[in-house]
Amino acid sequence: MGRQQRAVRTRRVILEAAAAMFNDFGYDATTIGGLIERTRLTRGGLYFHFASKEQLARAILDETSALRPVPPQPLKLQEWVDMALLLGYRLPRDPLLGATVRLSVDLRARALFGTRWPQWTDAGEELLCAARDRGELLGHVEPAEVARLLTASWAGIRLLDEALPDGELCTQFAVFLELVLPNIACPGVLAKLDTSPHRAAALDRAT
């Protein structure tokens, strides 16, 4: 393995370890000393990649600022559903994504770094606007309002699941979608939408 490849792999190891600690302990209680112990790197080795805990947090947020695009579908509303299902599938499996939610609800971290809620909400709104333009949404639906609701639900469902675990997170997202979709989708479109949580694993492999 070349030096550059080792550096990329080490950087990823550091980011994932820091993300796990932010998830487990919160921003304030996570320390560089604890991260060095977890990664078994030297202090110099860690500082070669990240000069501070603040830089680590910013790097994690930057890595997850844009949600990975979903595969194109005949219905734009299905793409919006797929985005929600994929997030539910990835949150417990991707430490950086999980840490982004944790940092975004941590008052101190939020004051320092802001959140990624605007980017995530914009991604949902873009798909919903495209669905509206294609006649897939009921006439009363405001894409910005629905996109904001989905982002808030992502965070709330994730945090509640951590406190009161109750099965697969993606299944909880699917239940949420099944409750929301009859209020926003035209009947002919609603009948064609697939909200199965099992869909998410196949989508993840395809992206």
Results as ranks from 00 to 15, higher is better:
I157N: 00
L159W: 04
P187T: 09
F173W: 10
E54R: 15
N183H: 14
G188K: 08
S153W: 05
E37I: 09
L86D: 04
A202R: 05
K53H: 06
D82K: 03
T100Q: 13
P143N: 07
C129Q: 11
G33I: 13
G139N: 08
M83R: 12
A206Y: 09
L190C: 07
D62R: 05
A185C: 01
T42D: 03
A17S: 09
C129S: 12
A200M: 10
G114M: 03
T171W: 11
Y89M: 12
L97A: 08
L41A: 02
L35W: 02
S104D: 13
T171Y: 13
L159Q: 12
E63Q: 15
Q119Y: 11
V81H: 00
L91P: 01
A84Y: 09
S52D: 06
I14N: 00
W154V: 03
L96I: 08
L128A: 10
R102C: 13
I32H: 00
G34M: 04
A84H: 04
L67T: 10
G88H: 05
G98S: 10
P197S: 08
L85V: 07
F22A: 05
L190H: 04
L41T: 03
R116L: 11
T42C: 05
L138Y: 01
D133V: 14
R58K: 15
T42Q: 06
A130L: 14
F113E: 06
L67C: 06
Y27D: 02
C186R: 10
E37H: 07
A155D: 06
A51Q: 13
M21R: 05
R110V: 08
L181W: 01
R40T: 15
G45W: 06
S65Y: 12
D161G: 13
R116Y: 03
S196Q: 02
D24E: 14
S153R: 08
L179W: 14
E37R: 14
A66M: 11
G135Y: 11
L15W: 01
R12L: 12
K192H: 15
A19H: 04
G114D: 10
A155H: 00
E79K: 07
P143D: 05
R108T: 14
Y89I: 10
L61E: 04
P165R: 00
W80P: 02
Q172Y: 02
A147Y: 03
K192C: 15
A206H: 04
P118Y: 03
T39C: 13
T64M: 08
A20P: 07
I32Y: 00
D106K: 07
E125T: 02
D194K: 09
R93A: 06
P72A: 10
A163R: 11
V180K: 01
R110E: 05
V141S: 01
A109F: 02
A123C: 04
L190G: 02
L91C: 09
L61Q: 09
F113D: 10
L86C: 04
T195G: 06
G45D: 06
F173M: 15
L128C: 04
Q73D: 14
I32M: 09
W80Y: 08
V175Y: 07
H198T: 15
A123K: 00
R116M: 14
R58I: 14
C186T: 09
Q4D: 03
L150K: 04
D194E: 05
I14M: 02
L97T: 07
R90Q: 12
L149S: 06
R43T: 08
R116P: 04
G167R: 05
R43V: 09
G135L: 09
E16L: 07
E16D: 14
D166C: 07
A20M: 13
D122A: 11
R148H: 13
